[in-house]
Structure formats: structure tokens, C-alpha cells
Design a protein around this nucleic acid. Structure first.
Lengths: 128, 128
DNA sequence: TCCATATTTCAGGATTTATGGAAATATTGA
DNA sequence: TCAATATTTCCATAAATCCTGAAATATGGA
């Protein structure tokens, strides 16, 4: 069942608009963006974006939260972690010196306020 | 130009056989495997595997090396690093405390991966 | 209730992709 | 050179996916 999820997630990321959307949501972090804001930022029609957001939702890569008339979307870091964990499980024949530099490279090095209180990441609800 | 590479890579990973192949090559690490060994291990026909290996090659996810009559394939860690770097660039609104645990989780430690930490890829609900 | 806003769902035709069989290429050894 | 092994390429068909336009649903306010 886990493999199917990973395939769904990679398929979701293999489409230009969805890759843009996901990276945008990764960049804005816990702030998230409403569907309309995303559509405006990426210049995509709303129905097309809606279909693509639905794919990302179903893939476990984003979450959403209704806010009045708008629906706010967030990157789902747990889903991403699961995906990368699946991809790299038991990697490198047990020799971490191969994947360690890989980890090093993708780490988020920008550390403006390392010791500050962590803002609470919203727990989204489901709006189908 | 990099976006196109990322799309190609994610598309490559969104096919069952190719995902299996790549994870297998990630697991065997620098040892690599010949095309025939991979075909036998995953029970795939050689021409189908060949086409899929070609897709992975073109996506920058695997490398190959001829060894006499065989061709040995390896996961391309640099390609993978570039892909993940692209996906997570400028992540988390500059607050690394969100992506740090993600990095932590996928790190390949010298000890065997704890089984209770993996295999927890969330099952997404259907929003259709 | 009626209207405006925000977003999703539906139905279609065009493009892409996967797979299997058969043939072709590359390497090794007799 | 000929045969055997290892892998790739070609071709045709079947299946999956994408986008667009139109209609539908959900929420908030007058």
C-alpha cells in the first residue's frame, strides 16, 4: 500500500503546475496560501488549479483548511517525509558516507532565529 | 532548465517498475547491479527493463558502466541531490525548524534504520 | 431570500506513455 | 568467422492523463 502512495506522490510532482504549486507551498511554509492566491501567483485557471490541488491532496503532499469562503493550502511535511523515507530506505548498502552529503545539501541552511519558539503548524480539516 | 529536469525525474519515479529499480539501486549503493540482475530480481522482461532504465538514465537518476557483456547500473546520488534540492529550495519560509526534522528522518545513519520510524507513510483520504 | 465570491465537478477530445514481440547491436570465446 | 550471451531498439496497440468550457456547490452578506 505504501508503494502505491509513493507512486501517486511522484506522479503528482511530475506535472509542471503541480510542481510549481508544491514548491510554492514549501516556500511559504506554515503561512500557506489560498487557492485563489495560488492561481493568481502562478497564472493558472481556477478549475485547472483545483484539479491539480486535488491531485496533490490525494497524493498526501498538501493539506487544506477552509477559511470562510477561501480554502487555504499548505505543504504536508509529513507526507513529504514519508515519501522521501520510502525512496531512501535502507540506502547506500549501509554505508552512510554516501548519503550523508546528500542530506547535508538539501538541509535548509538559512537560520534567521534558530532558538525561537516554533510557530504551530495548522492542523487542517478536510473539505471535499 | 532545472525545472524540466525535475519534472523528468519525478515522472521517471512515478512508474512502478522504475520506482522499484531505483530503490533497489539505492539500497545496493556503490555495488550497483547489472541489467540482467535487476531484471531477475524484479521479474521484469529485459526489453521492458531496458526501456525503463533508459528513462531513469535520461532523468539523471541512474548511471551505468559497461563491464564486458553486462552493463552495471548505479543510483546517481548527485542527480538525486539536485532533485531534492530543487524541491526544497527556500523552504519553510526561512524557518528551518520545519524542515530540519524532515532532514533528520531521511538521514542514513550507520545503524540500521529503526523499523518503527519507517513504514508510516500516511494514507491520504479521498477528496474527489 | 437573492446575489456575489471562492472553489470544485463534469464531460469531451488531444497528447503522452507503457508494454510485448521481433529484430538489431555489442561483447566474448571457440 | 560463427555461435552464445547481454542488452537495446523498433513498432503497434492499449491505457492513462491534461486542459478547456460550462455547470454546480459552498459560504457570506444585504
Amino acid at each position: 500500500m505504501e508503494k502505491k502512495n509513493a507512486l501517486t506522490a511522484f506522479a503528482a510532482l511530475s506535472q509542471p503546475t503541480r510542481l510549481d504549486v508544491f514548491r510554492l507551498l514549501v516556500q511559504v511554509g506554515e503561512a500557506g496560501m489560498s487557492a485563489g492566491e495560488i492561481a493568481a501567483a502562478l497564472d493558472v485557471r481556477q478549475n485547472t488549479l483545483s484539479a491539480n490541488l486535488s491531485v496533490l491532496l490525494h497524493a498526501g503532499l498538501v493539506r487544506n483548511l477552509r477559511e470562510g469562503r477561501s480554502i487555504r493550502y499548505f505543504a504536508d511535511t509529513e507526507g513529504l517525509r514519508g515519501l522521501l523515507g520510502y525512496l531512501l530506505r535502507d540506502c547506500c548498502g549501509g554505508r552512510p558516507e554516501i548519503c550523508d552529503p546528500l542530506i547535508e545539501d538539501i538541509a535548509c541552511h538559512a537560520r534567521p532565529t534558530p532558538l525561537d519558539k516554533i510557530g504551530q503548524y495548522p492542523t487542517p480539516e478536510d473539505h471535499t
